[in-house]
Design a protein around this nucleic acid. Sequence first.
DNA 1: TTCAAAATATGAGATATCTCACATTATTCT
DNA 2: AGAATAATGTGAGATATCTCATATTTTGAA
Lengths: 221, 221
Amino acid sequence: MQIITGDLLTHYIEQYPIDDYFSFDIRPYMKVCLFEKGEWIFKEGSYPDTMYYMVEGKAKLYVTHKNGKVSLIEYIEAPCFMGEIELLNEARYTKGIQTVARTICLSIAVHECREKLLADAIFLRRICVFLGEKATAVTAKYTQNQVYPLENRLAAFIQLSSDQGIYKEKHTEICEYLGVSYRHLLYVLAQFCEENILEKTKKGYRIINDKRLGELAQEIL
Amino acid sequence: MQIITGDLLTHYIEQYPIDDYFSFDIRPYMKVCLFEKGEWIFKEGSYPDTMYYMVEGKAKLYVTHKNGKVSLIEYIEAPCFMGEIELLNEARYTKGIQTVARTICLSIAVHECREKLLADAIFLRRICVFLGEKATAVTAKYTQNQVYPLENRLAAFIQLSSDQGIYKEKHTEICEYLGVSYRHLLYVLAQFCEENILEKTKKGYRIINDKRLGELAQEIL
DNA sequence: TTCAAAATATGAGATATCTCACATTATTCT
DNA sequence: AGAATAATGTGAGATATCTCATATTTTGAA
C-alpha cells in the first residue's frame, strides 16, 4: 500500500469529492491510498483502525472456514465503504479484502474522528443505506445459491459478466464466488458448450445462444 | 393484528422504554401492536409504511423464489427492528415476516416522522449496528451452508436449539432454515439415531452423545 | 367430534456436486 | 531464458442432496 501525496493527491480529492458524505470537514482525517493488484486491504482476522472509501478499482471479500475452504462473499466495487462495520463495533475481527485490480481509496483514520462520525447523521444515513443494500444483496445471492443449481446461476453470471458476447473470467475465482468446486464449474461450462450455448475460443467462451442462456438465467430473476 | 390501548399500552411502554433509541420524543408516533402466532407482519412483496421494534416474541423472515421454493432467511427475535430498510430506501419491496409466537411490537408510523428519524444520529447509529450485525450473521450462516454438509450444520443447530437435552423443532420449518429438503433432514436425523447420537422419543429427539454432537458441530466453529 | 389440513415418515431412483489424482498449459519472477 | 507458480483441463468414483410417490399420524378448526 502506498500513500499518495502531491499533485496526485489533490487530483483524487478533487475528482472524488466526498464532502457531501459528512457534515464536517473530513479532509484533515483523510489520506489517499493506492493498492496494487492482489494486495490485501484487510488481512482476515485483523482489527483494522482505518475505514476506506474506494473510489477506483475492485476487490474481493473473503472468509476462510475452519475446514480450510474459502468463500468469496462478494465483489466490492467502487464507490463503496470498507471497514465500516469495524468502525461501529469497536475492535471487531474482520474478513479479508483483496484487490483484483489497482485500487484507489480514500482512507479515514477512525481513531481520530470516531466520535464525530458516530454523531454525524449525514454520514450514518449513508452507511445505513449502504449496509442495507449489502445485506439485501448478500442474502439474495446466497438464498439463490441454495435454491438453484449451478446451471442457472452460472447462466445468470455469464450474462452479467460477459463483455461483447465473450465470457472470460478466472475459473479459480468464479468457482469460489459461485460456491462450487472448480471441477463442477468446468463440467457445467462443458455442458453449455455441448448444448451449443457457448463456444470455447482462445479469447474465452463466446456466447452463441444468448436466448437459451437467458432462459436458464431467467429462472432466477 | 391488534392495536393495544389502555392499561396494557402503558404497561408495554413502561416495560420496554425505547427513548434512548431516539433523540426526540417518539411516543407521539408510536403505537403498540400485538400479532397472533402465524400472522404476517409484512406480506412478501408489499411496500410497508410502518417500522416495528419487536419487544416480545419471535418471527421468521422469508423469501419466495421464482421456482416456488422458499428460503427461511433467519429467525428474528426480540429485541429488534423490522422494516428499517424500507424506511431508508423509500418504497422498497419487502420480504415476508411471519410470527412464530404471539408477538408484541412497538410500531412507528414512518410517513409521519421519516425526516426526523433520518436526521437522528442516535437512532441511525443503532440501525447501523443492527444492520451490520444482521449482515454478518446472514453471511456467516450462508457461507457455512455452502461449505459444510448438513451433518455438521444440523449438529450445531441441535446444540443451539435443544432444551434440557431434547431437540424438538418442526422439521418442516428447520429444513427451510437449513436450506435442505425435508427428506434429507430426516435422513440425517435418522443417521444420528443410527450412530447413537440421538434417540427418538415421544417428546422429541433426546441427545445421548453430546460429545460426538459437539465434535460434529465444532468443525464449523 | 369429526374432518381437513399440516406434519411426520419412508422407499426408490435420480442428479448435482465433491474429492482426488494427474497432465497440460499460462504467467510471473529472477 | 528458465524455473517456479498459478491456472486450466479431464477421468473416475464417491456422496450429499433432491424429487416424487405414498402412507400414517397429529393438529386445528367447524
